[in-house]
């Protein structure tokens, strides 16, 4: 049970950590879902070609960075609306992957890793331990970067008061771009982790984890350590709703919606209780 929760936590956490960086820099990253998908697909391509899981992780990260580079150019250079460009990122991934899949593998659906997938993934317990510890270590590193380094100070300033950064001669766009690329890498690795664990790429393999990650950012109070806790909670519900198929007679299709419902509830609970009050006086009862 704990193993499966930790294993479910890894991709959510990685994606959410990247999202925390962009959110801190002032960009709510709607495109994470597409970035995960892209990372997953290219990791399968790389593992099939090389037989190495590490190559798969690198390929996933590189693919995520490449797509988020396009995303950041649209947002920063072309000044596109960040939400619409995020949607475009998701659609682009969902549309392009079948094309590439058709071109490379002659199928637009399921792509299996061309090697013995259990050998690639390694021993499940060791693998889970490595990834879980690794992703928590990354969370600690992200926290250190955000709160202990000049880079992190500038990232937080880019989101908190870009003008204050600009009058000190530092470009906020530069730090937005850096975090978007980092978020691409993190989401790409998250996708690669899922695909190499399952040994297969299936359409919609991300299954909404990009959106769950977005909510995990807020539920974790935009703090990497809090995000770890939020990711564990969401992972717990994911495992629970999977396990529920076994011990209840609720149909499996229905349970697919549960993670979203839980996430929605979390978002609303956060909105009600999680925000600071900054009000002097009270806003008028307009309605």
């Amino acid at each position: 049970m704990i193993t499966s929760i930790l294993s479910a936590m890894v991709p959510i956490l990685l994606a959410a950590l990247g999202g925390t960086l962009t959110e801190r820099a002032g960009v709510l990253n709607i495109g994470i879902e597409g970035l995960i998908l892209t990372g997953a697909f290219f990791s399968v391509v790389a593992v099939s070609a090389t037989g190495s899981m590490v190559a798969g992780l690198f390929a996933g990260a590189a693919a995520g960075v490449a797509l988020s580079a396009v995303y950041s150019v649209a947002c920063i250079e072309l000044r596109a609306n960040i939400f619409v460009a995020g949607l475009a990122t998701n659609l682009f991934a969902a549309g392009m992957i079948p094309f590439l899949s058709e071109t490379f593998f002659g199928t637009r659906g399921v792509v299996r890793i061309a090697h013995d997938s259990s050998r690639i993934a390694g021993d499940p317990a060791i693998r889970t331990a490595v990834f879980a510890l690794g992703s928590i270590a990354i969370a600690a590193a992200v926290a250190a970067i955000l709160f202990r380094t000049p880079l992190g100070m500038r990232i937080r300033a880019a989101g908190g008061n870009p003008d204050a950064l600009a009058v000190r001669g530092v470009s906020p766009s530069r730090y937005r771009r850096i975090t978007m690329l980092a978020s691409g890498a993190f989401a790409g690795i998250a996708g690669a982790e899922i695909a190499t664990r399952l040994g297969v790429y299936v359409p919609n393999i991300s299954a909404g984890r990009g959106w769950i990650a977005l909510v995990a950012i807020f539920l974790g109070a935009r703090n990497p350590i809090g995000v770890v806790a939020a990711s564990v909670v969401f992972a717990g519900f994911e495992v629970l709703s999977g396990a529920a198929q076994g011990f209840t007679n609720v149909p499996g299709t229905l349970l697919l919606g549960v993670p979203f419902l839980v996430t929605l509830a979390a978002m609303i609970v956060y909105s009600i209780f999680g925000r600071r009050t900054r009000i002097q006086g009270q806003p008028s009862p307009n309605e």
């Binding site: 100070m153 937080r156 300033a157 989101g159 908190g160 008061n161 003008d163 204050a164 950064l165 009058v167």
Partner: peptide, 12 residues
């Protein structure tokens, strides 16, 4: 004052 609310005084 051009200050960032999220940052500490020292960081600002």
């Amino acid at each position: 004052p051009r200050l960032v609310d999220e940052l500490t005084v020292l960081e600002n």
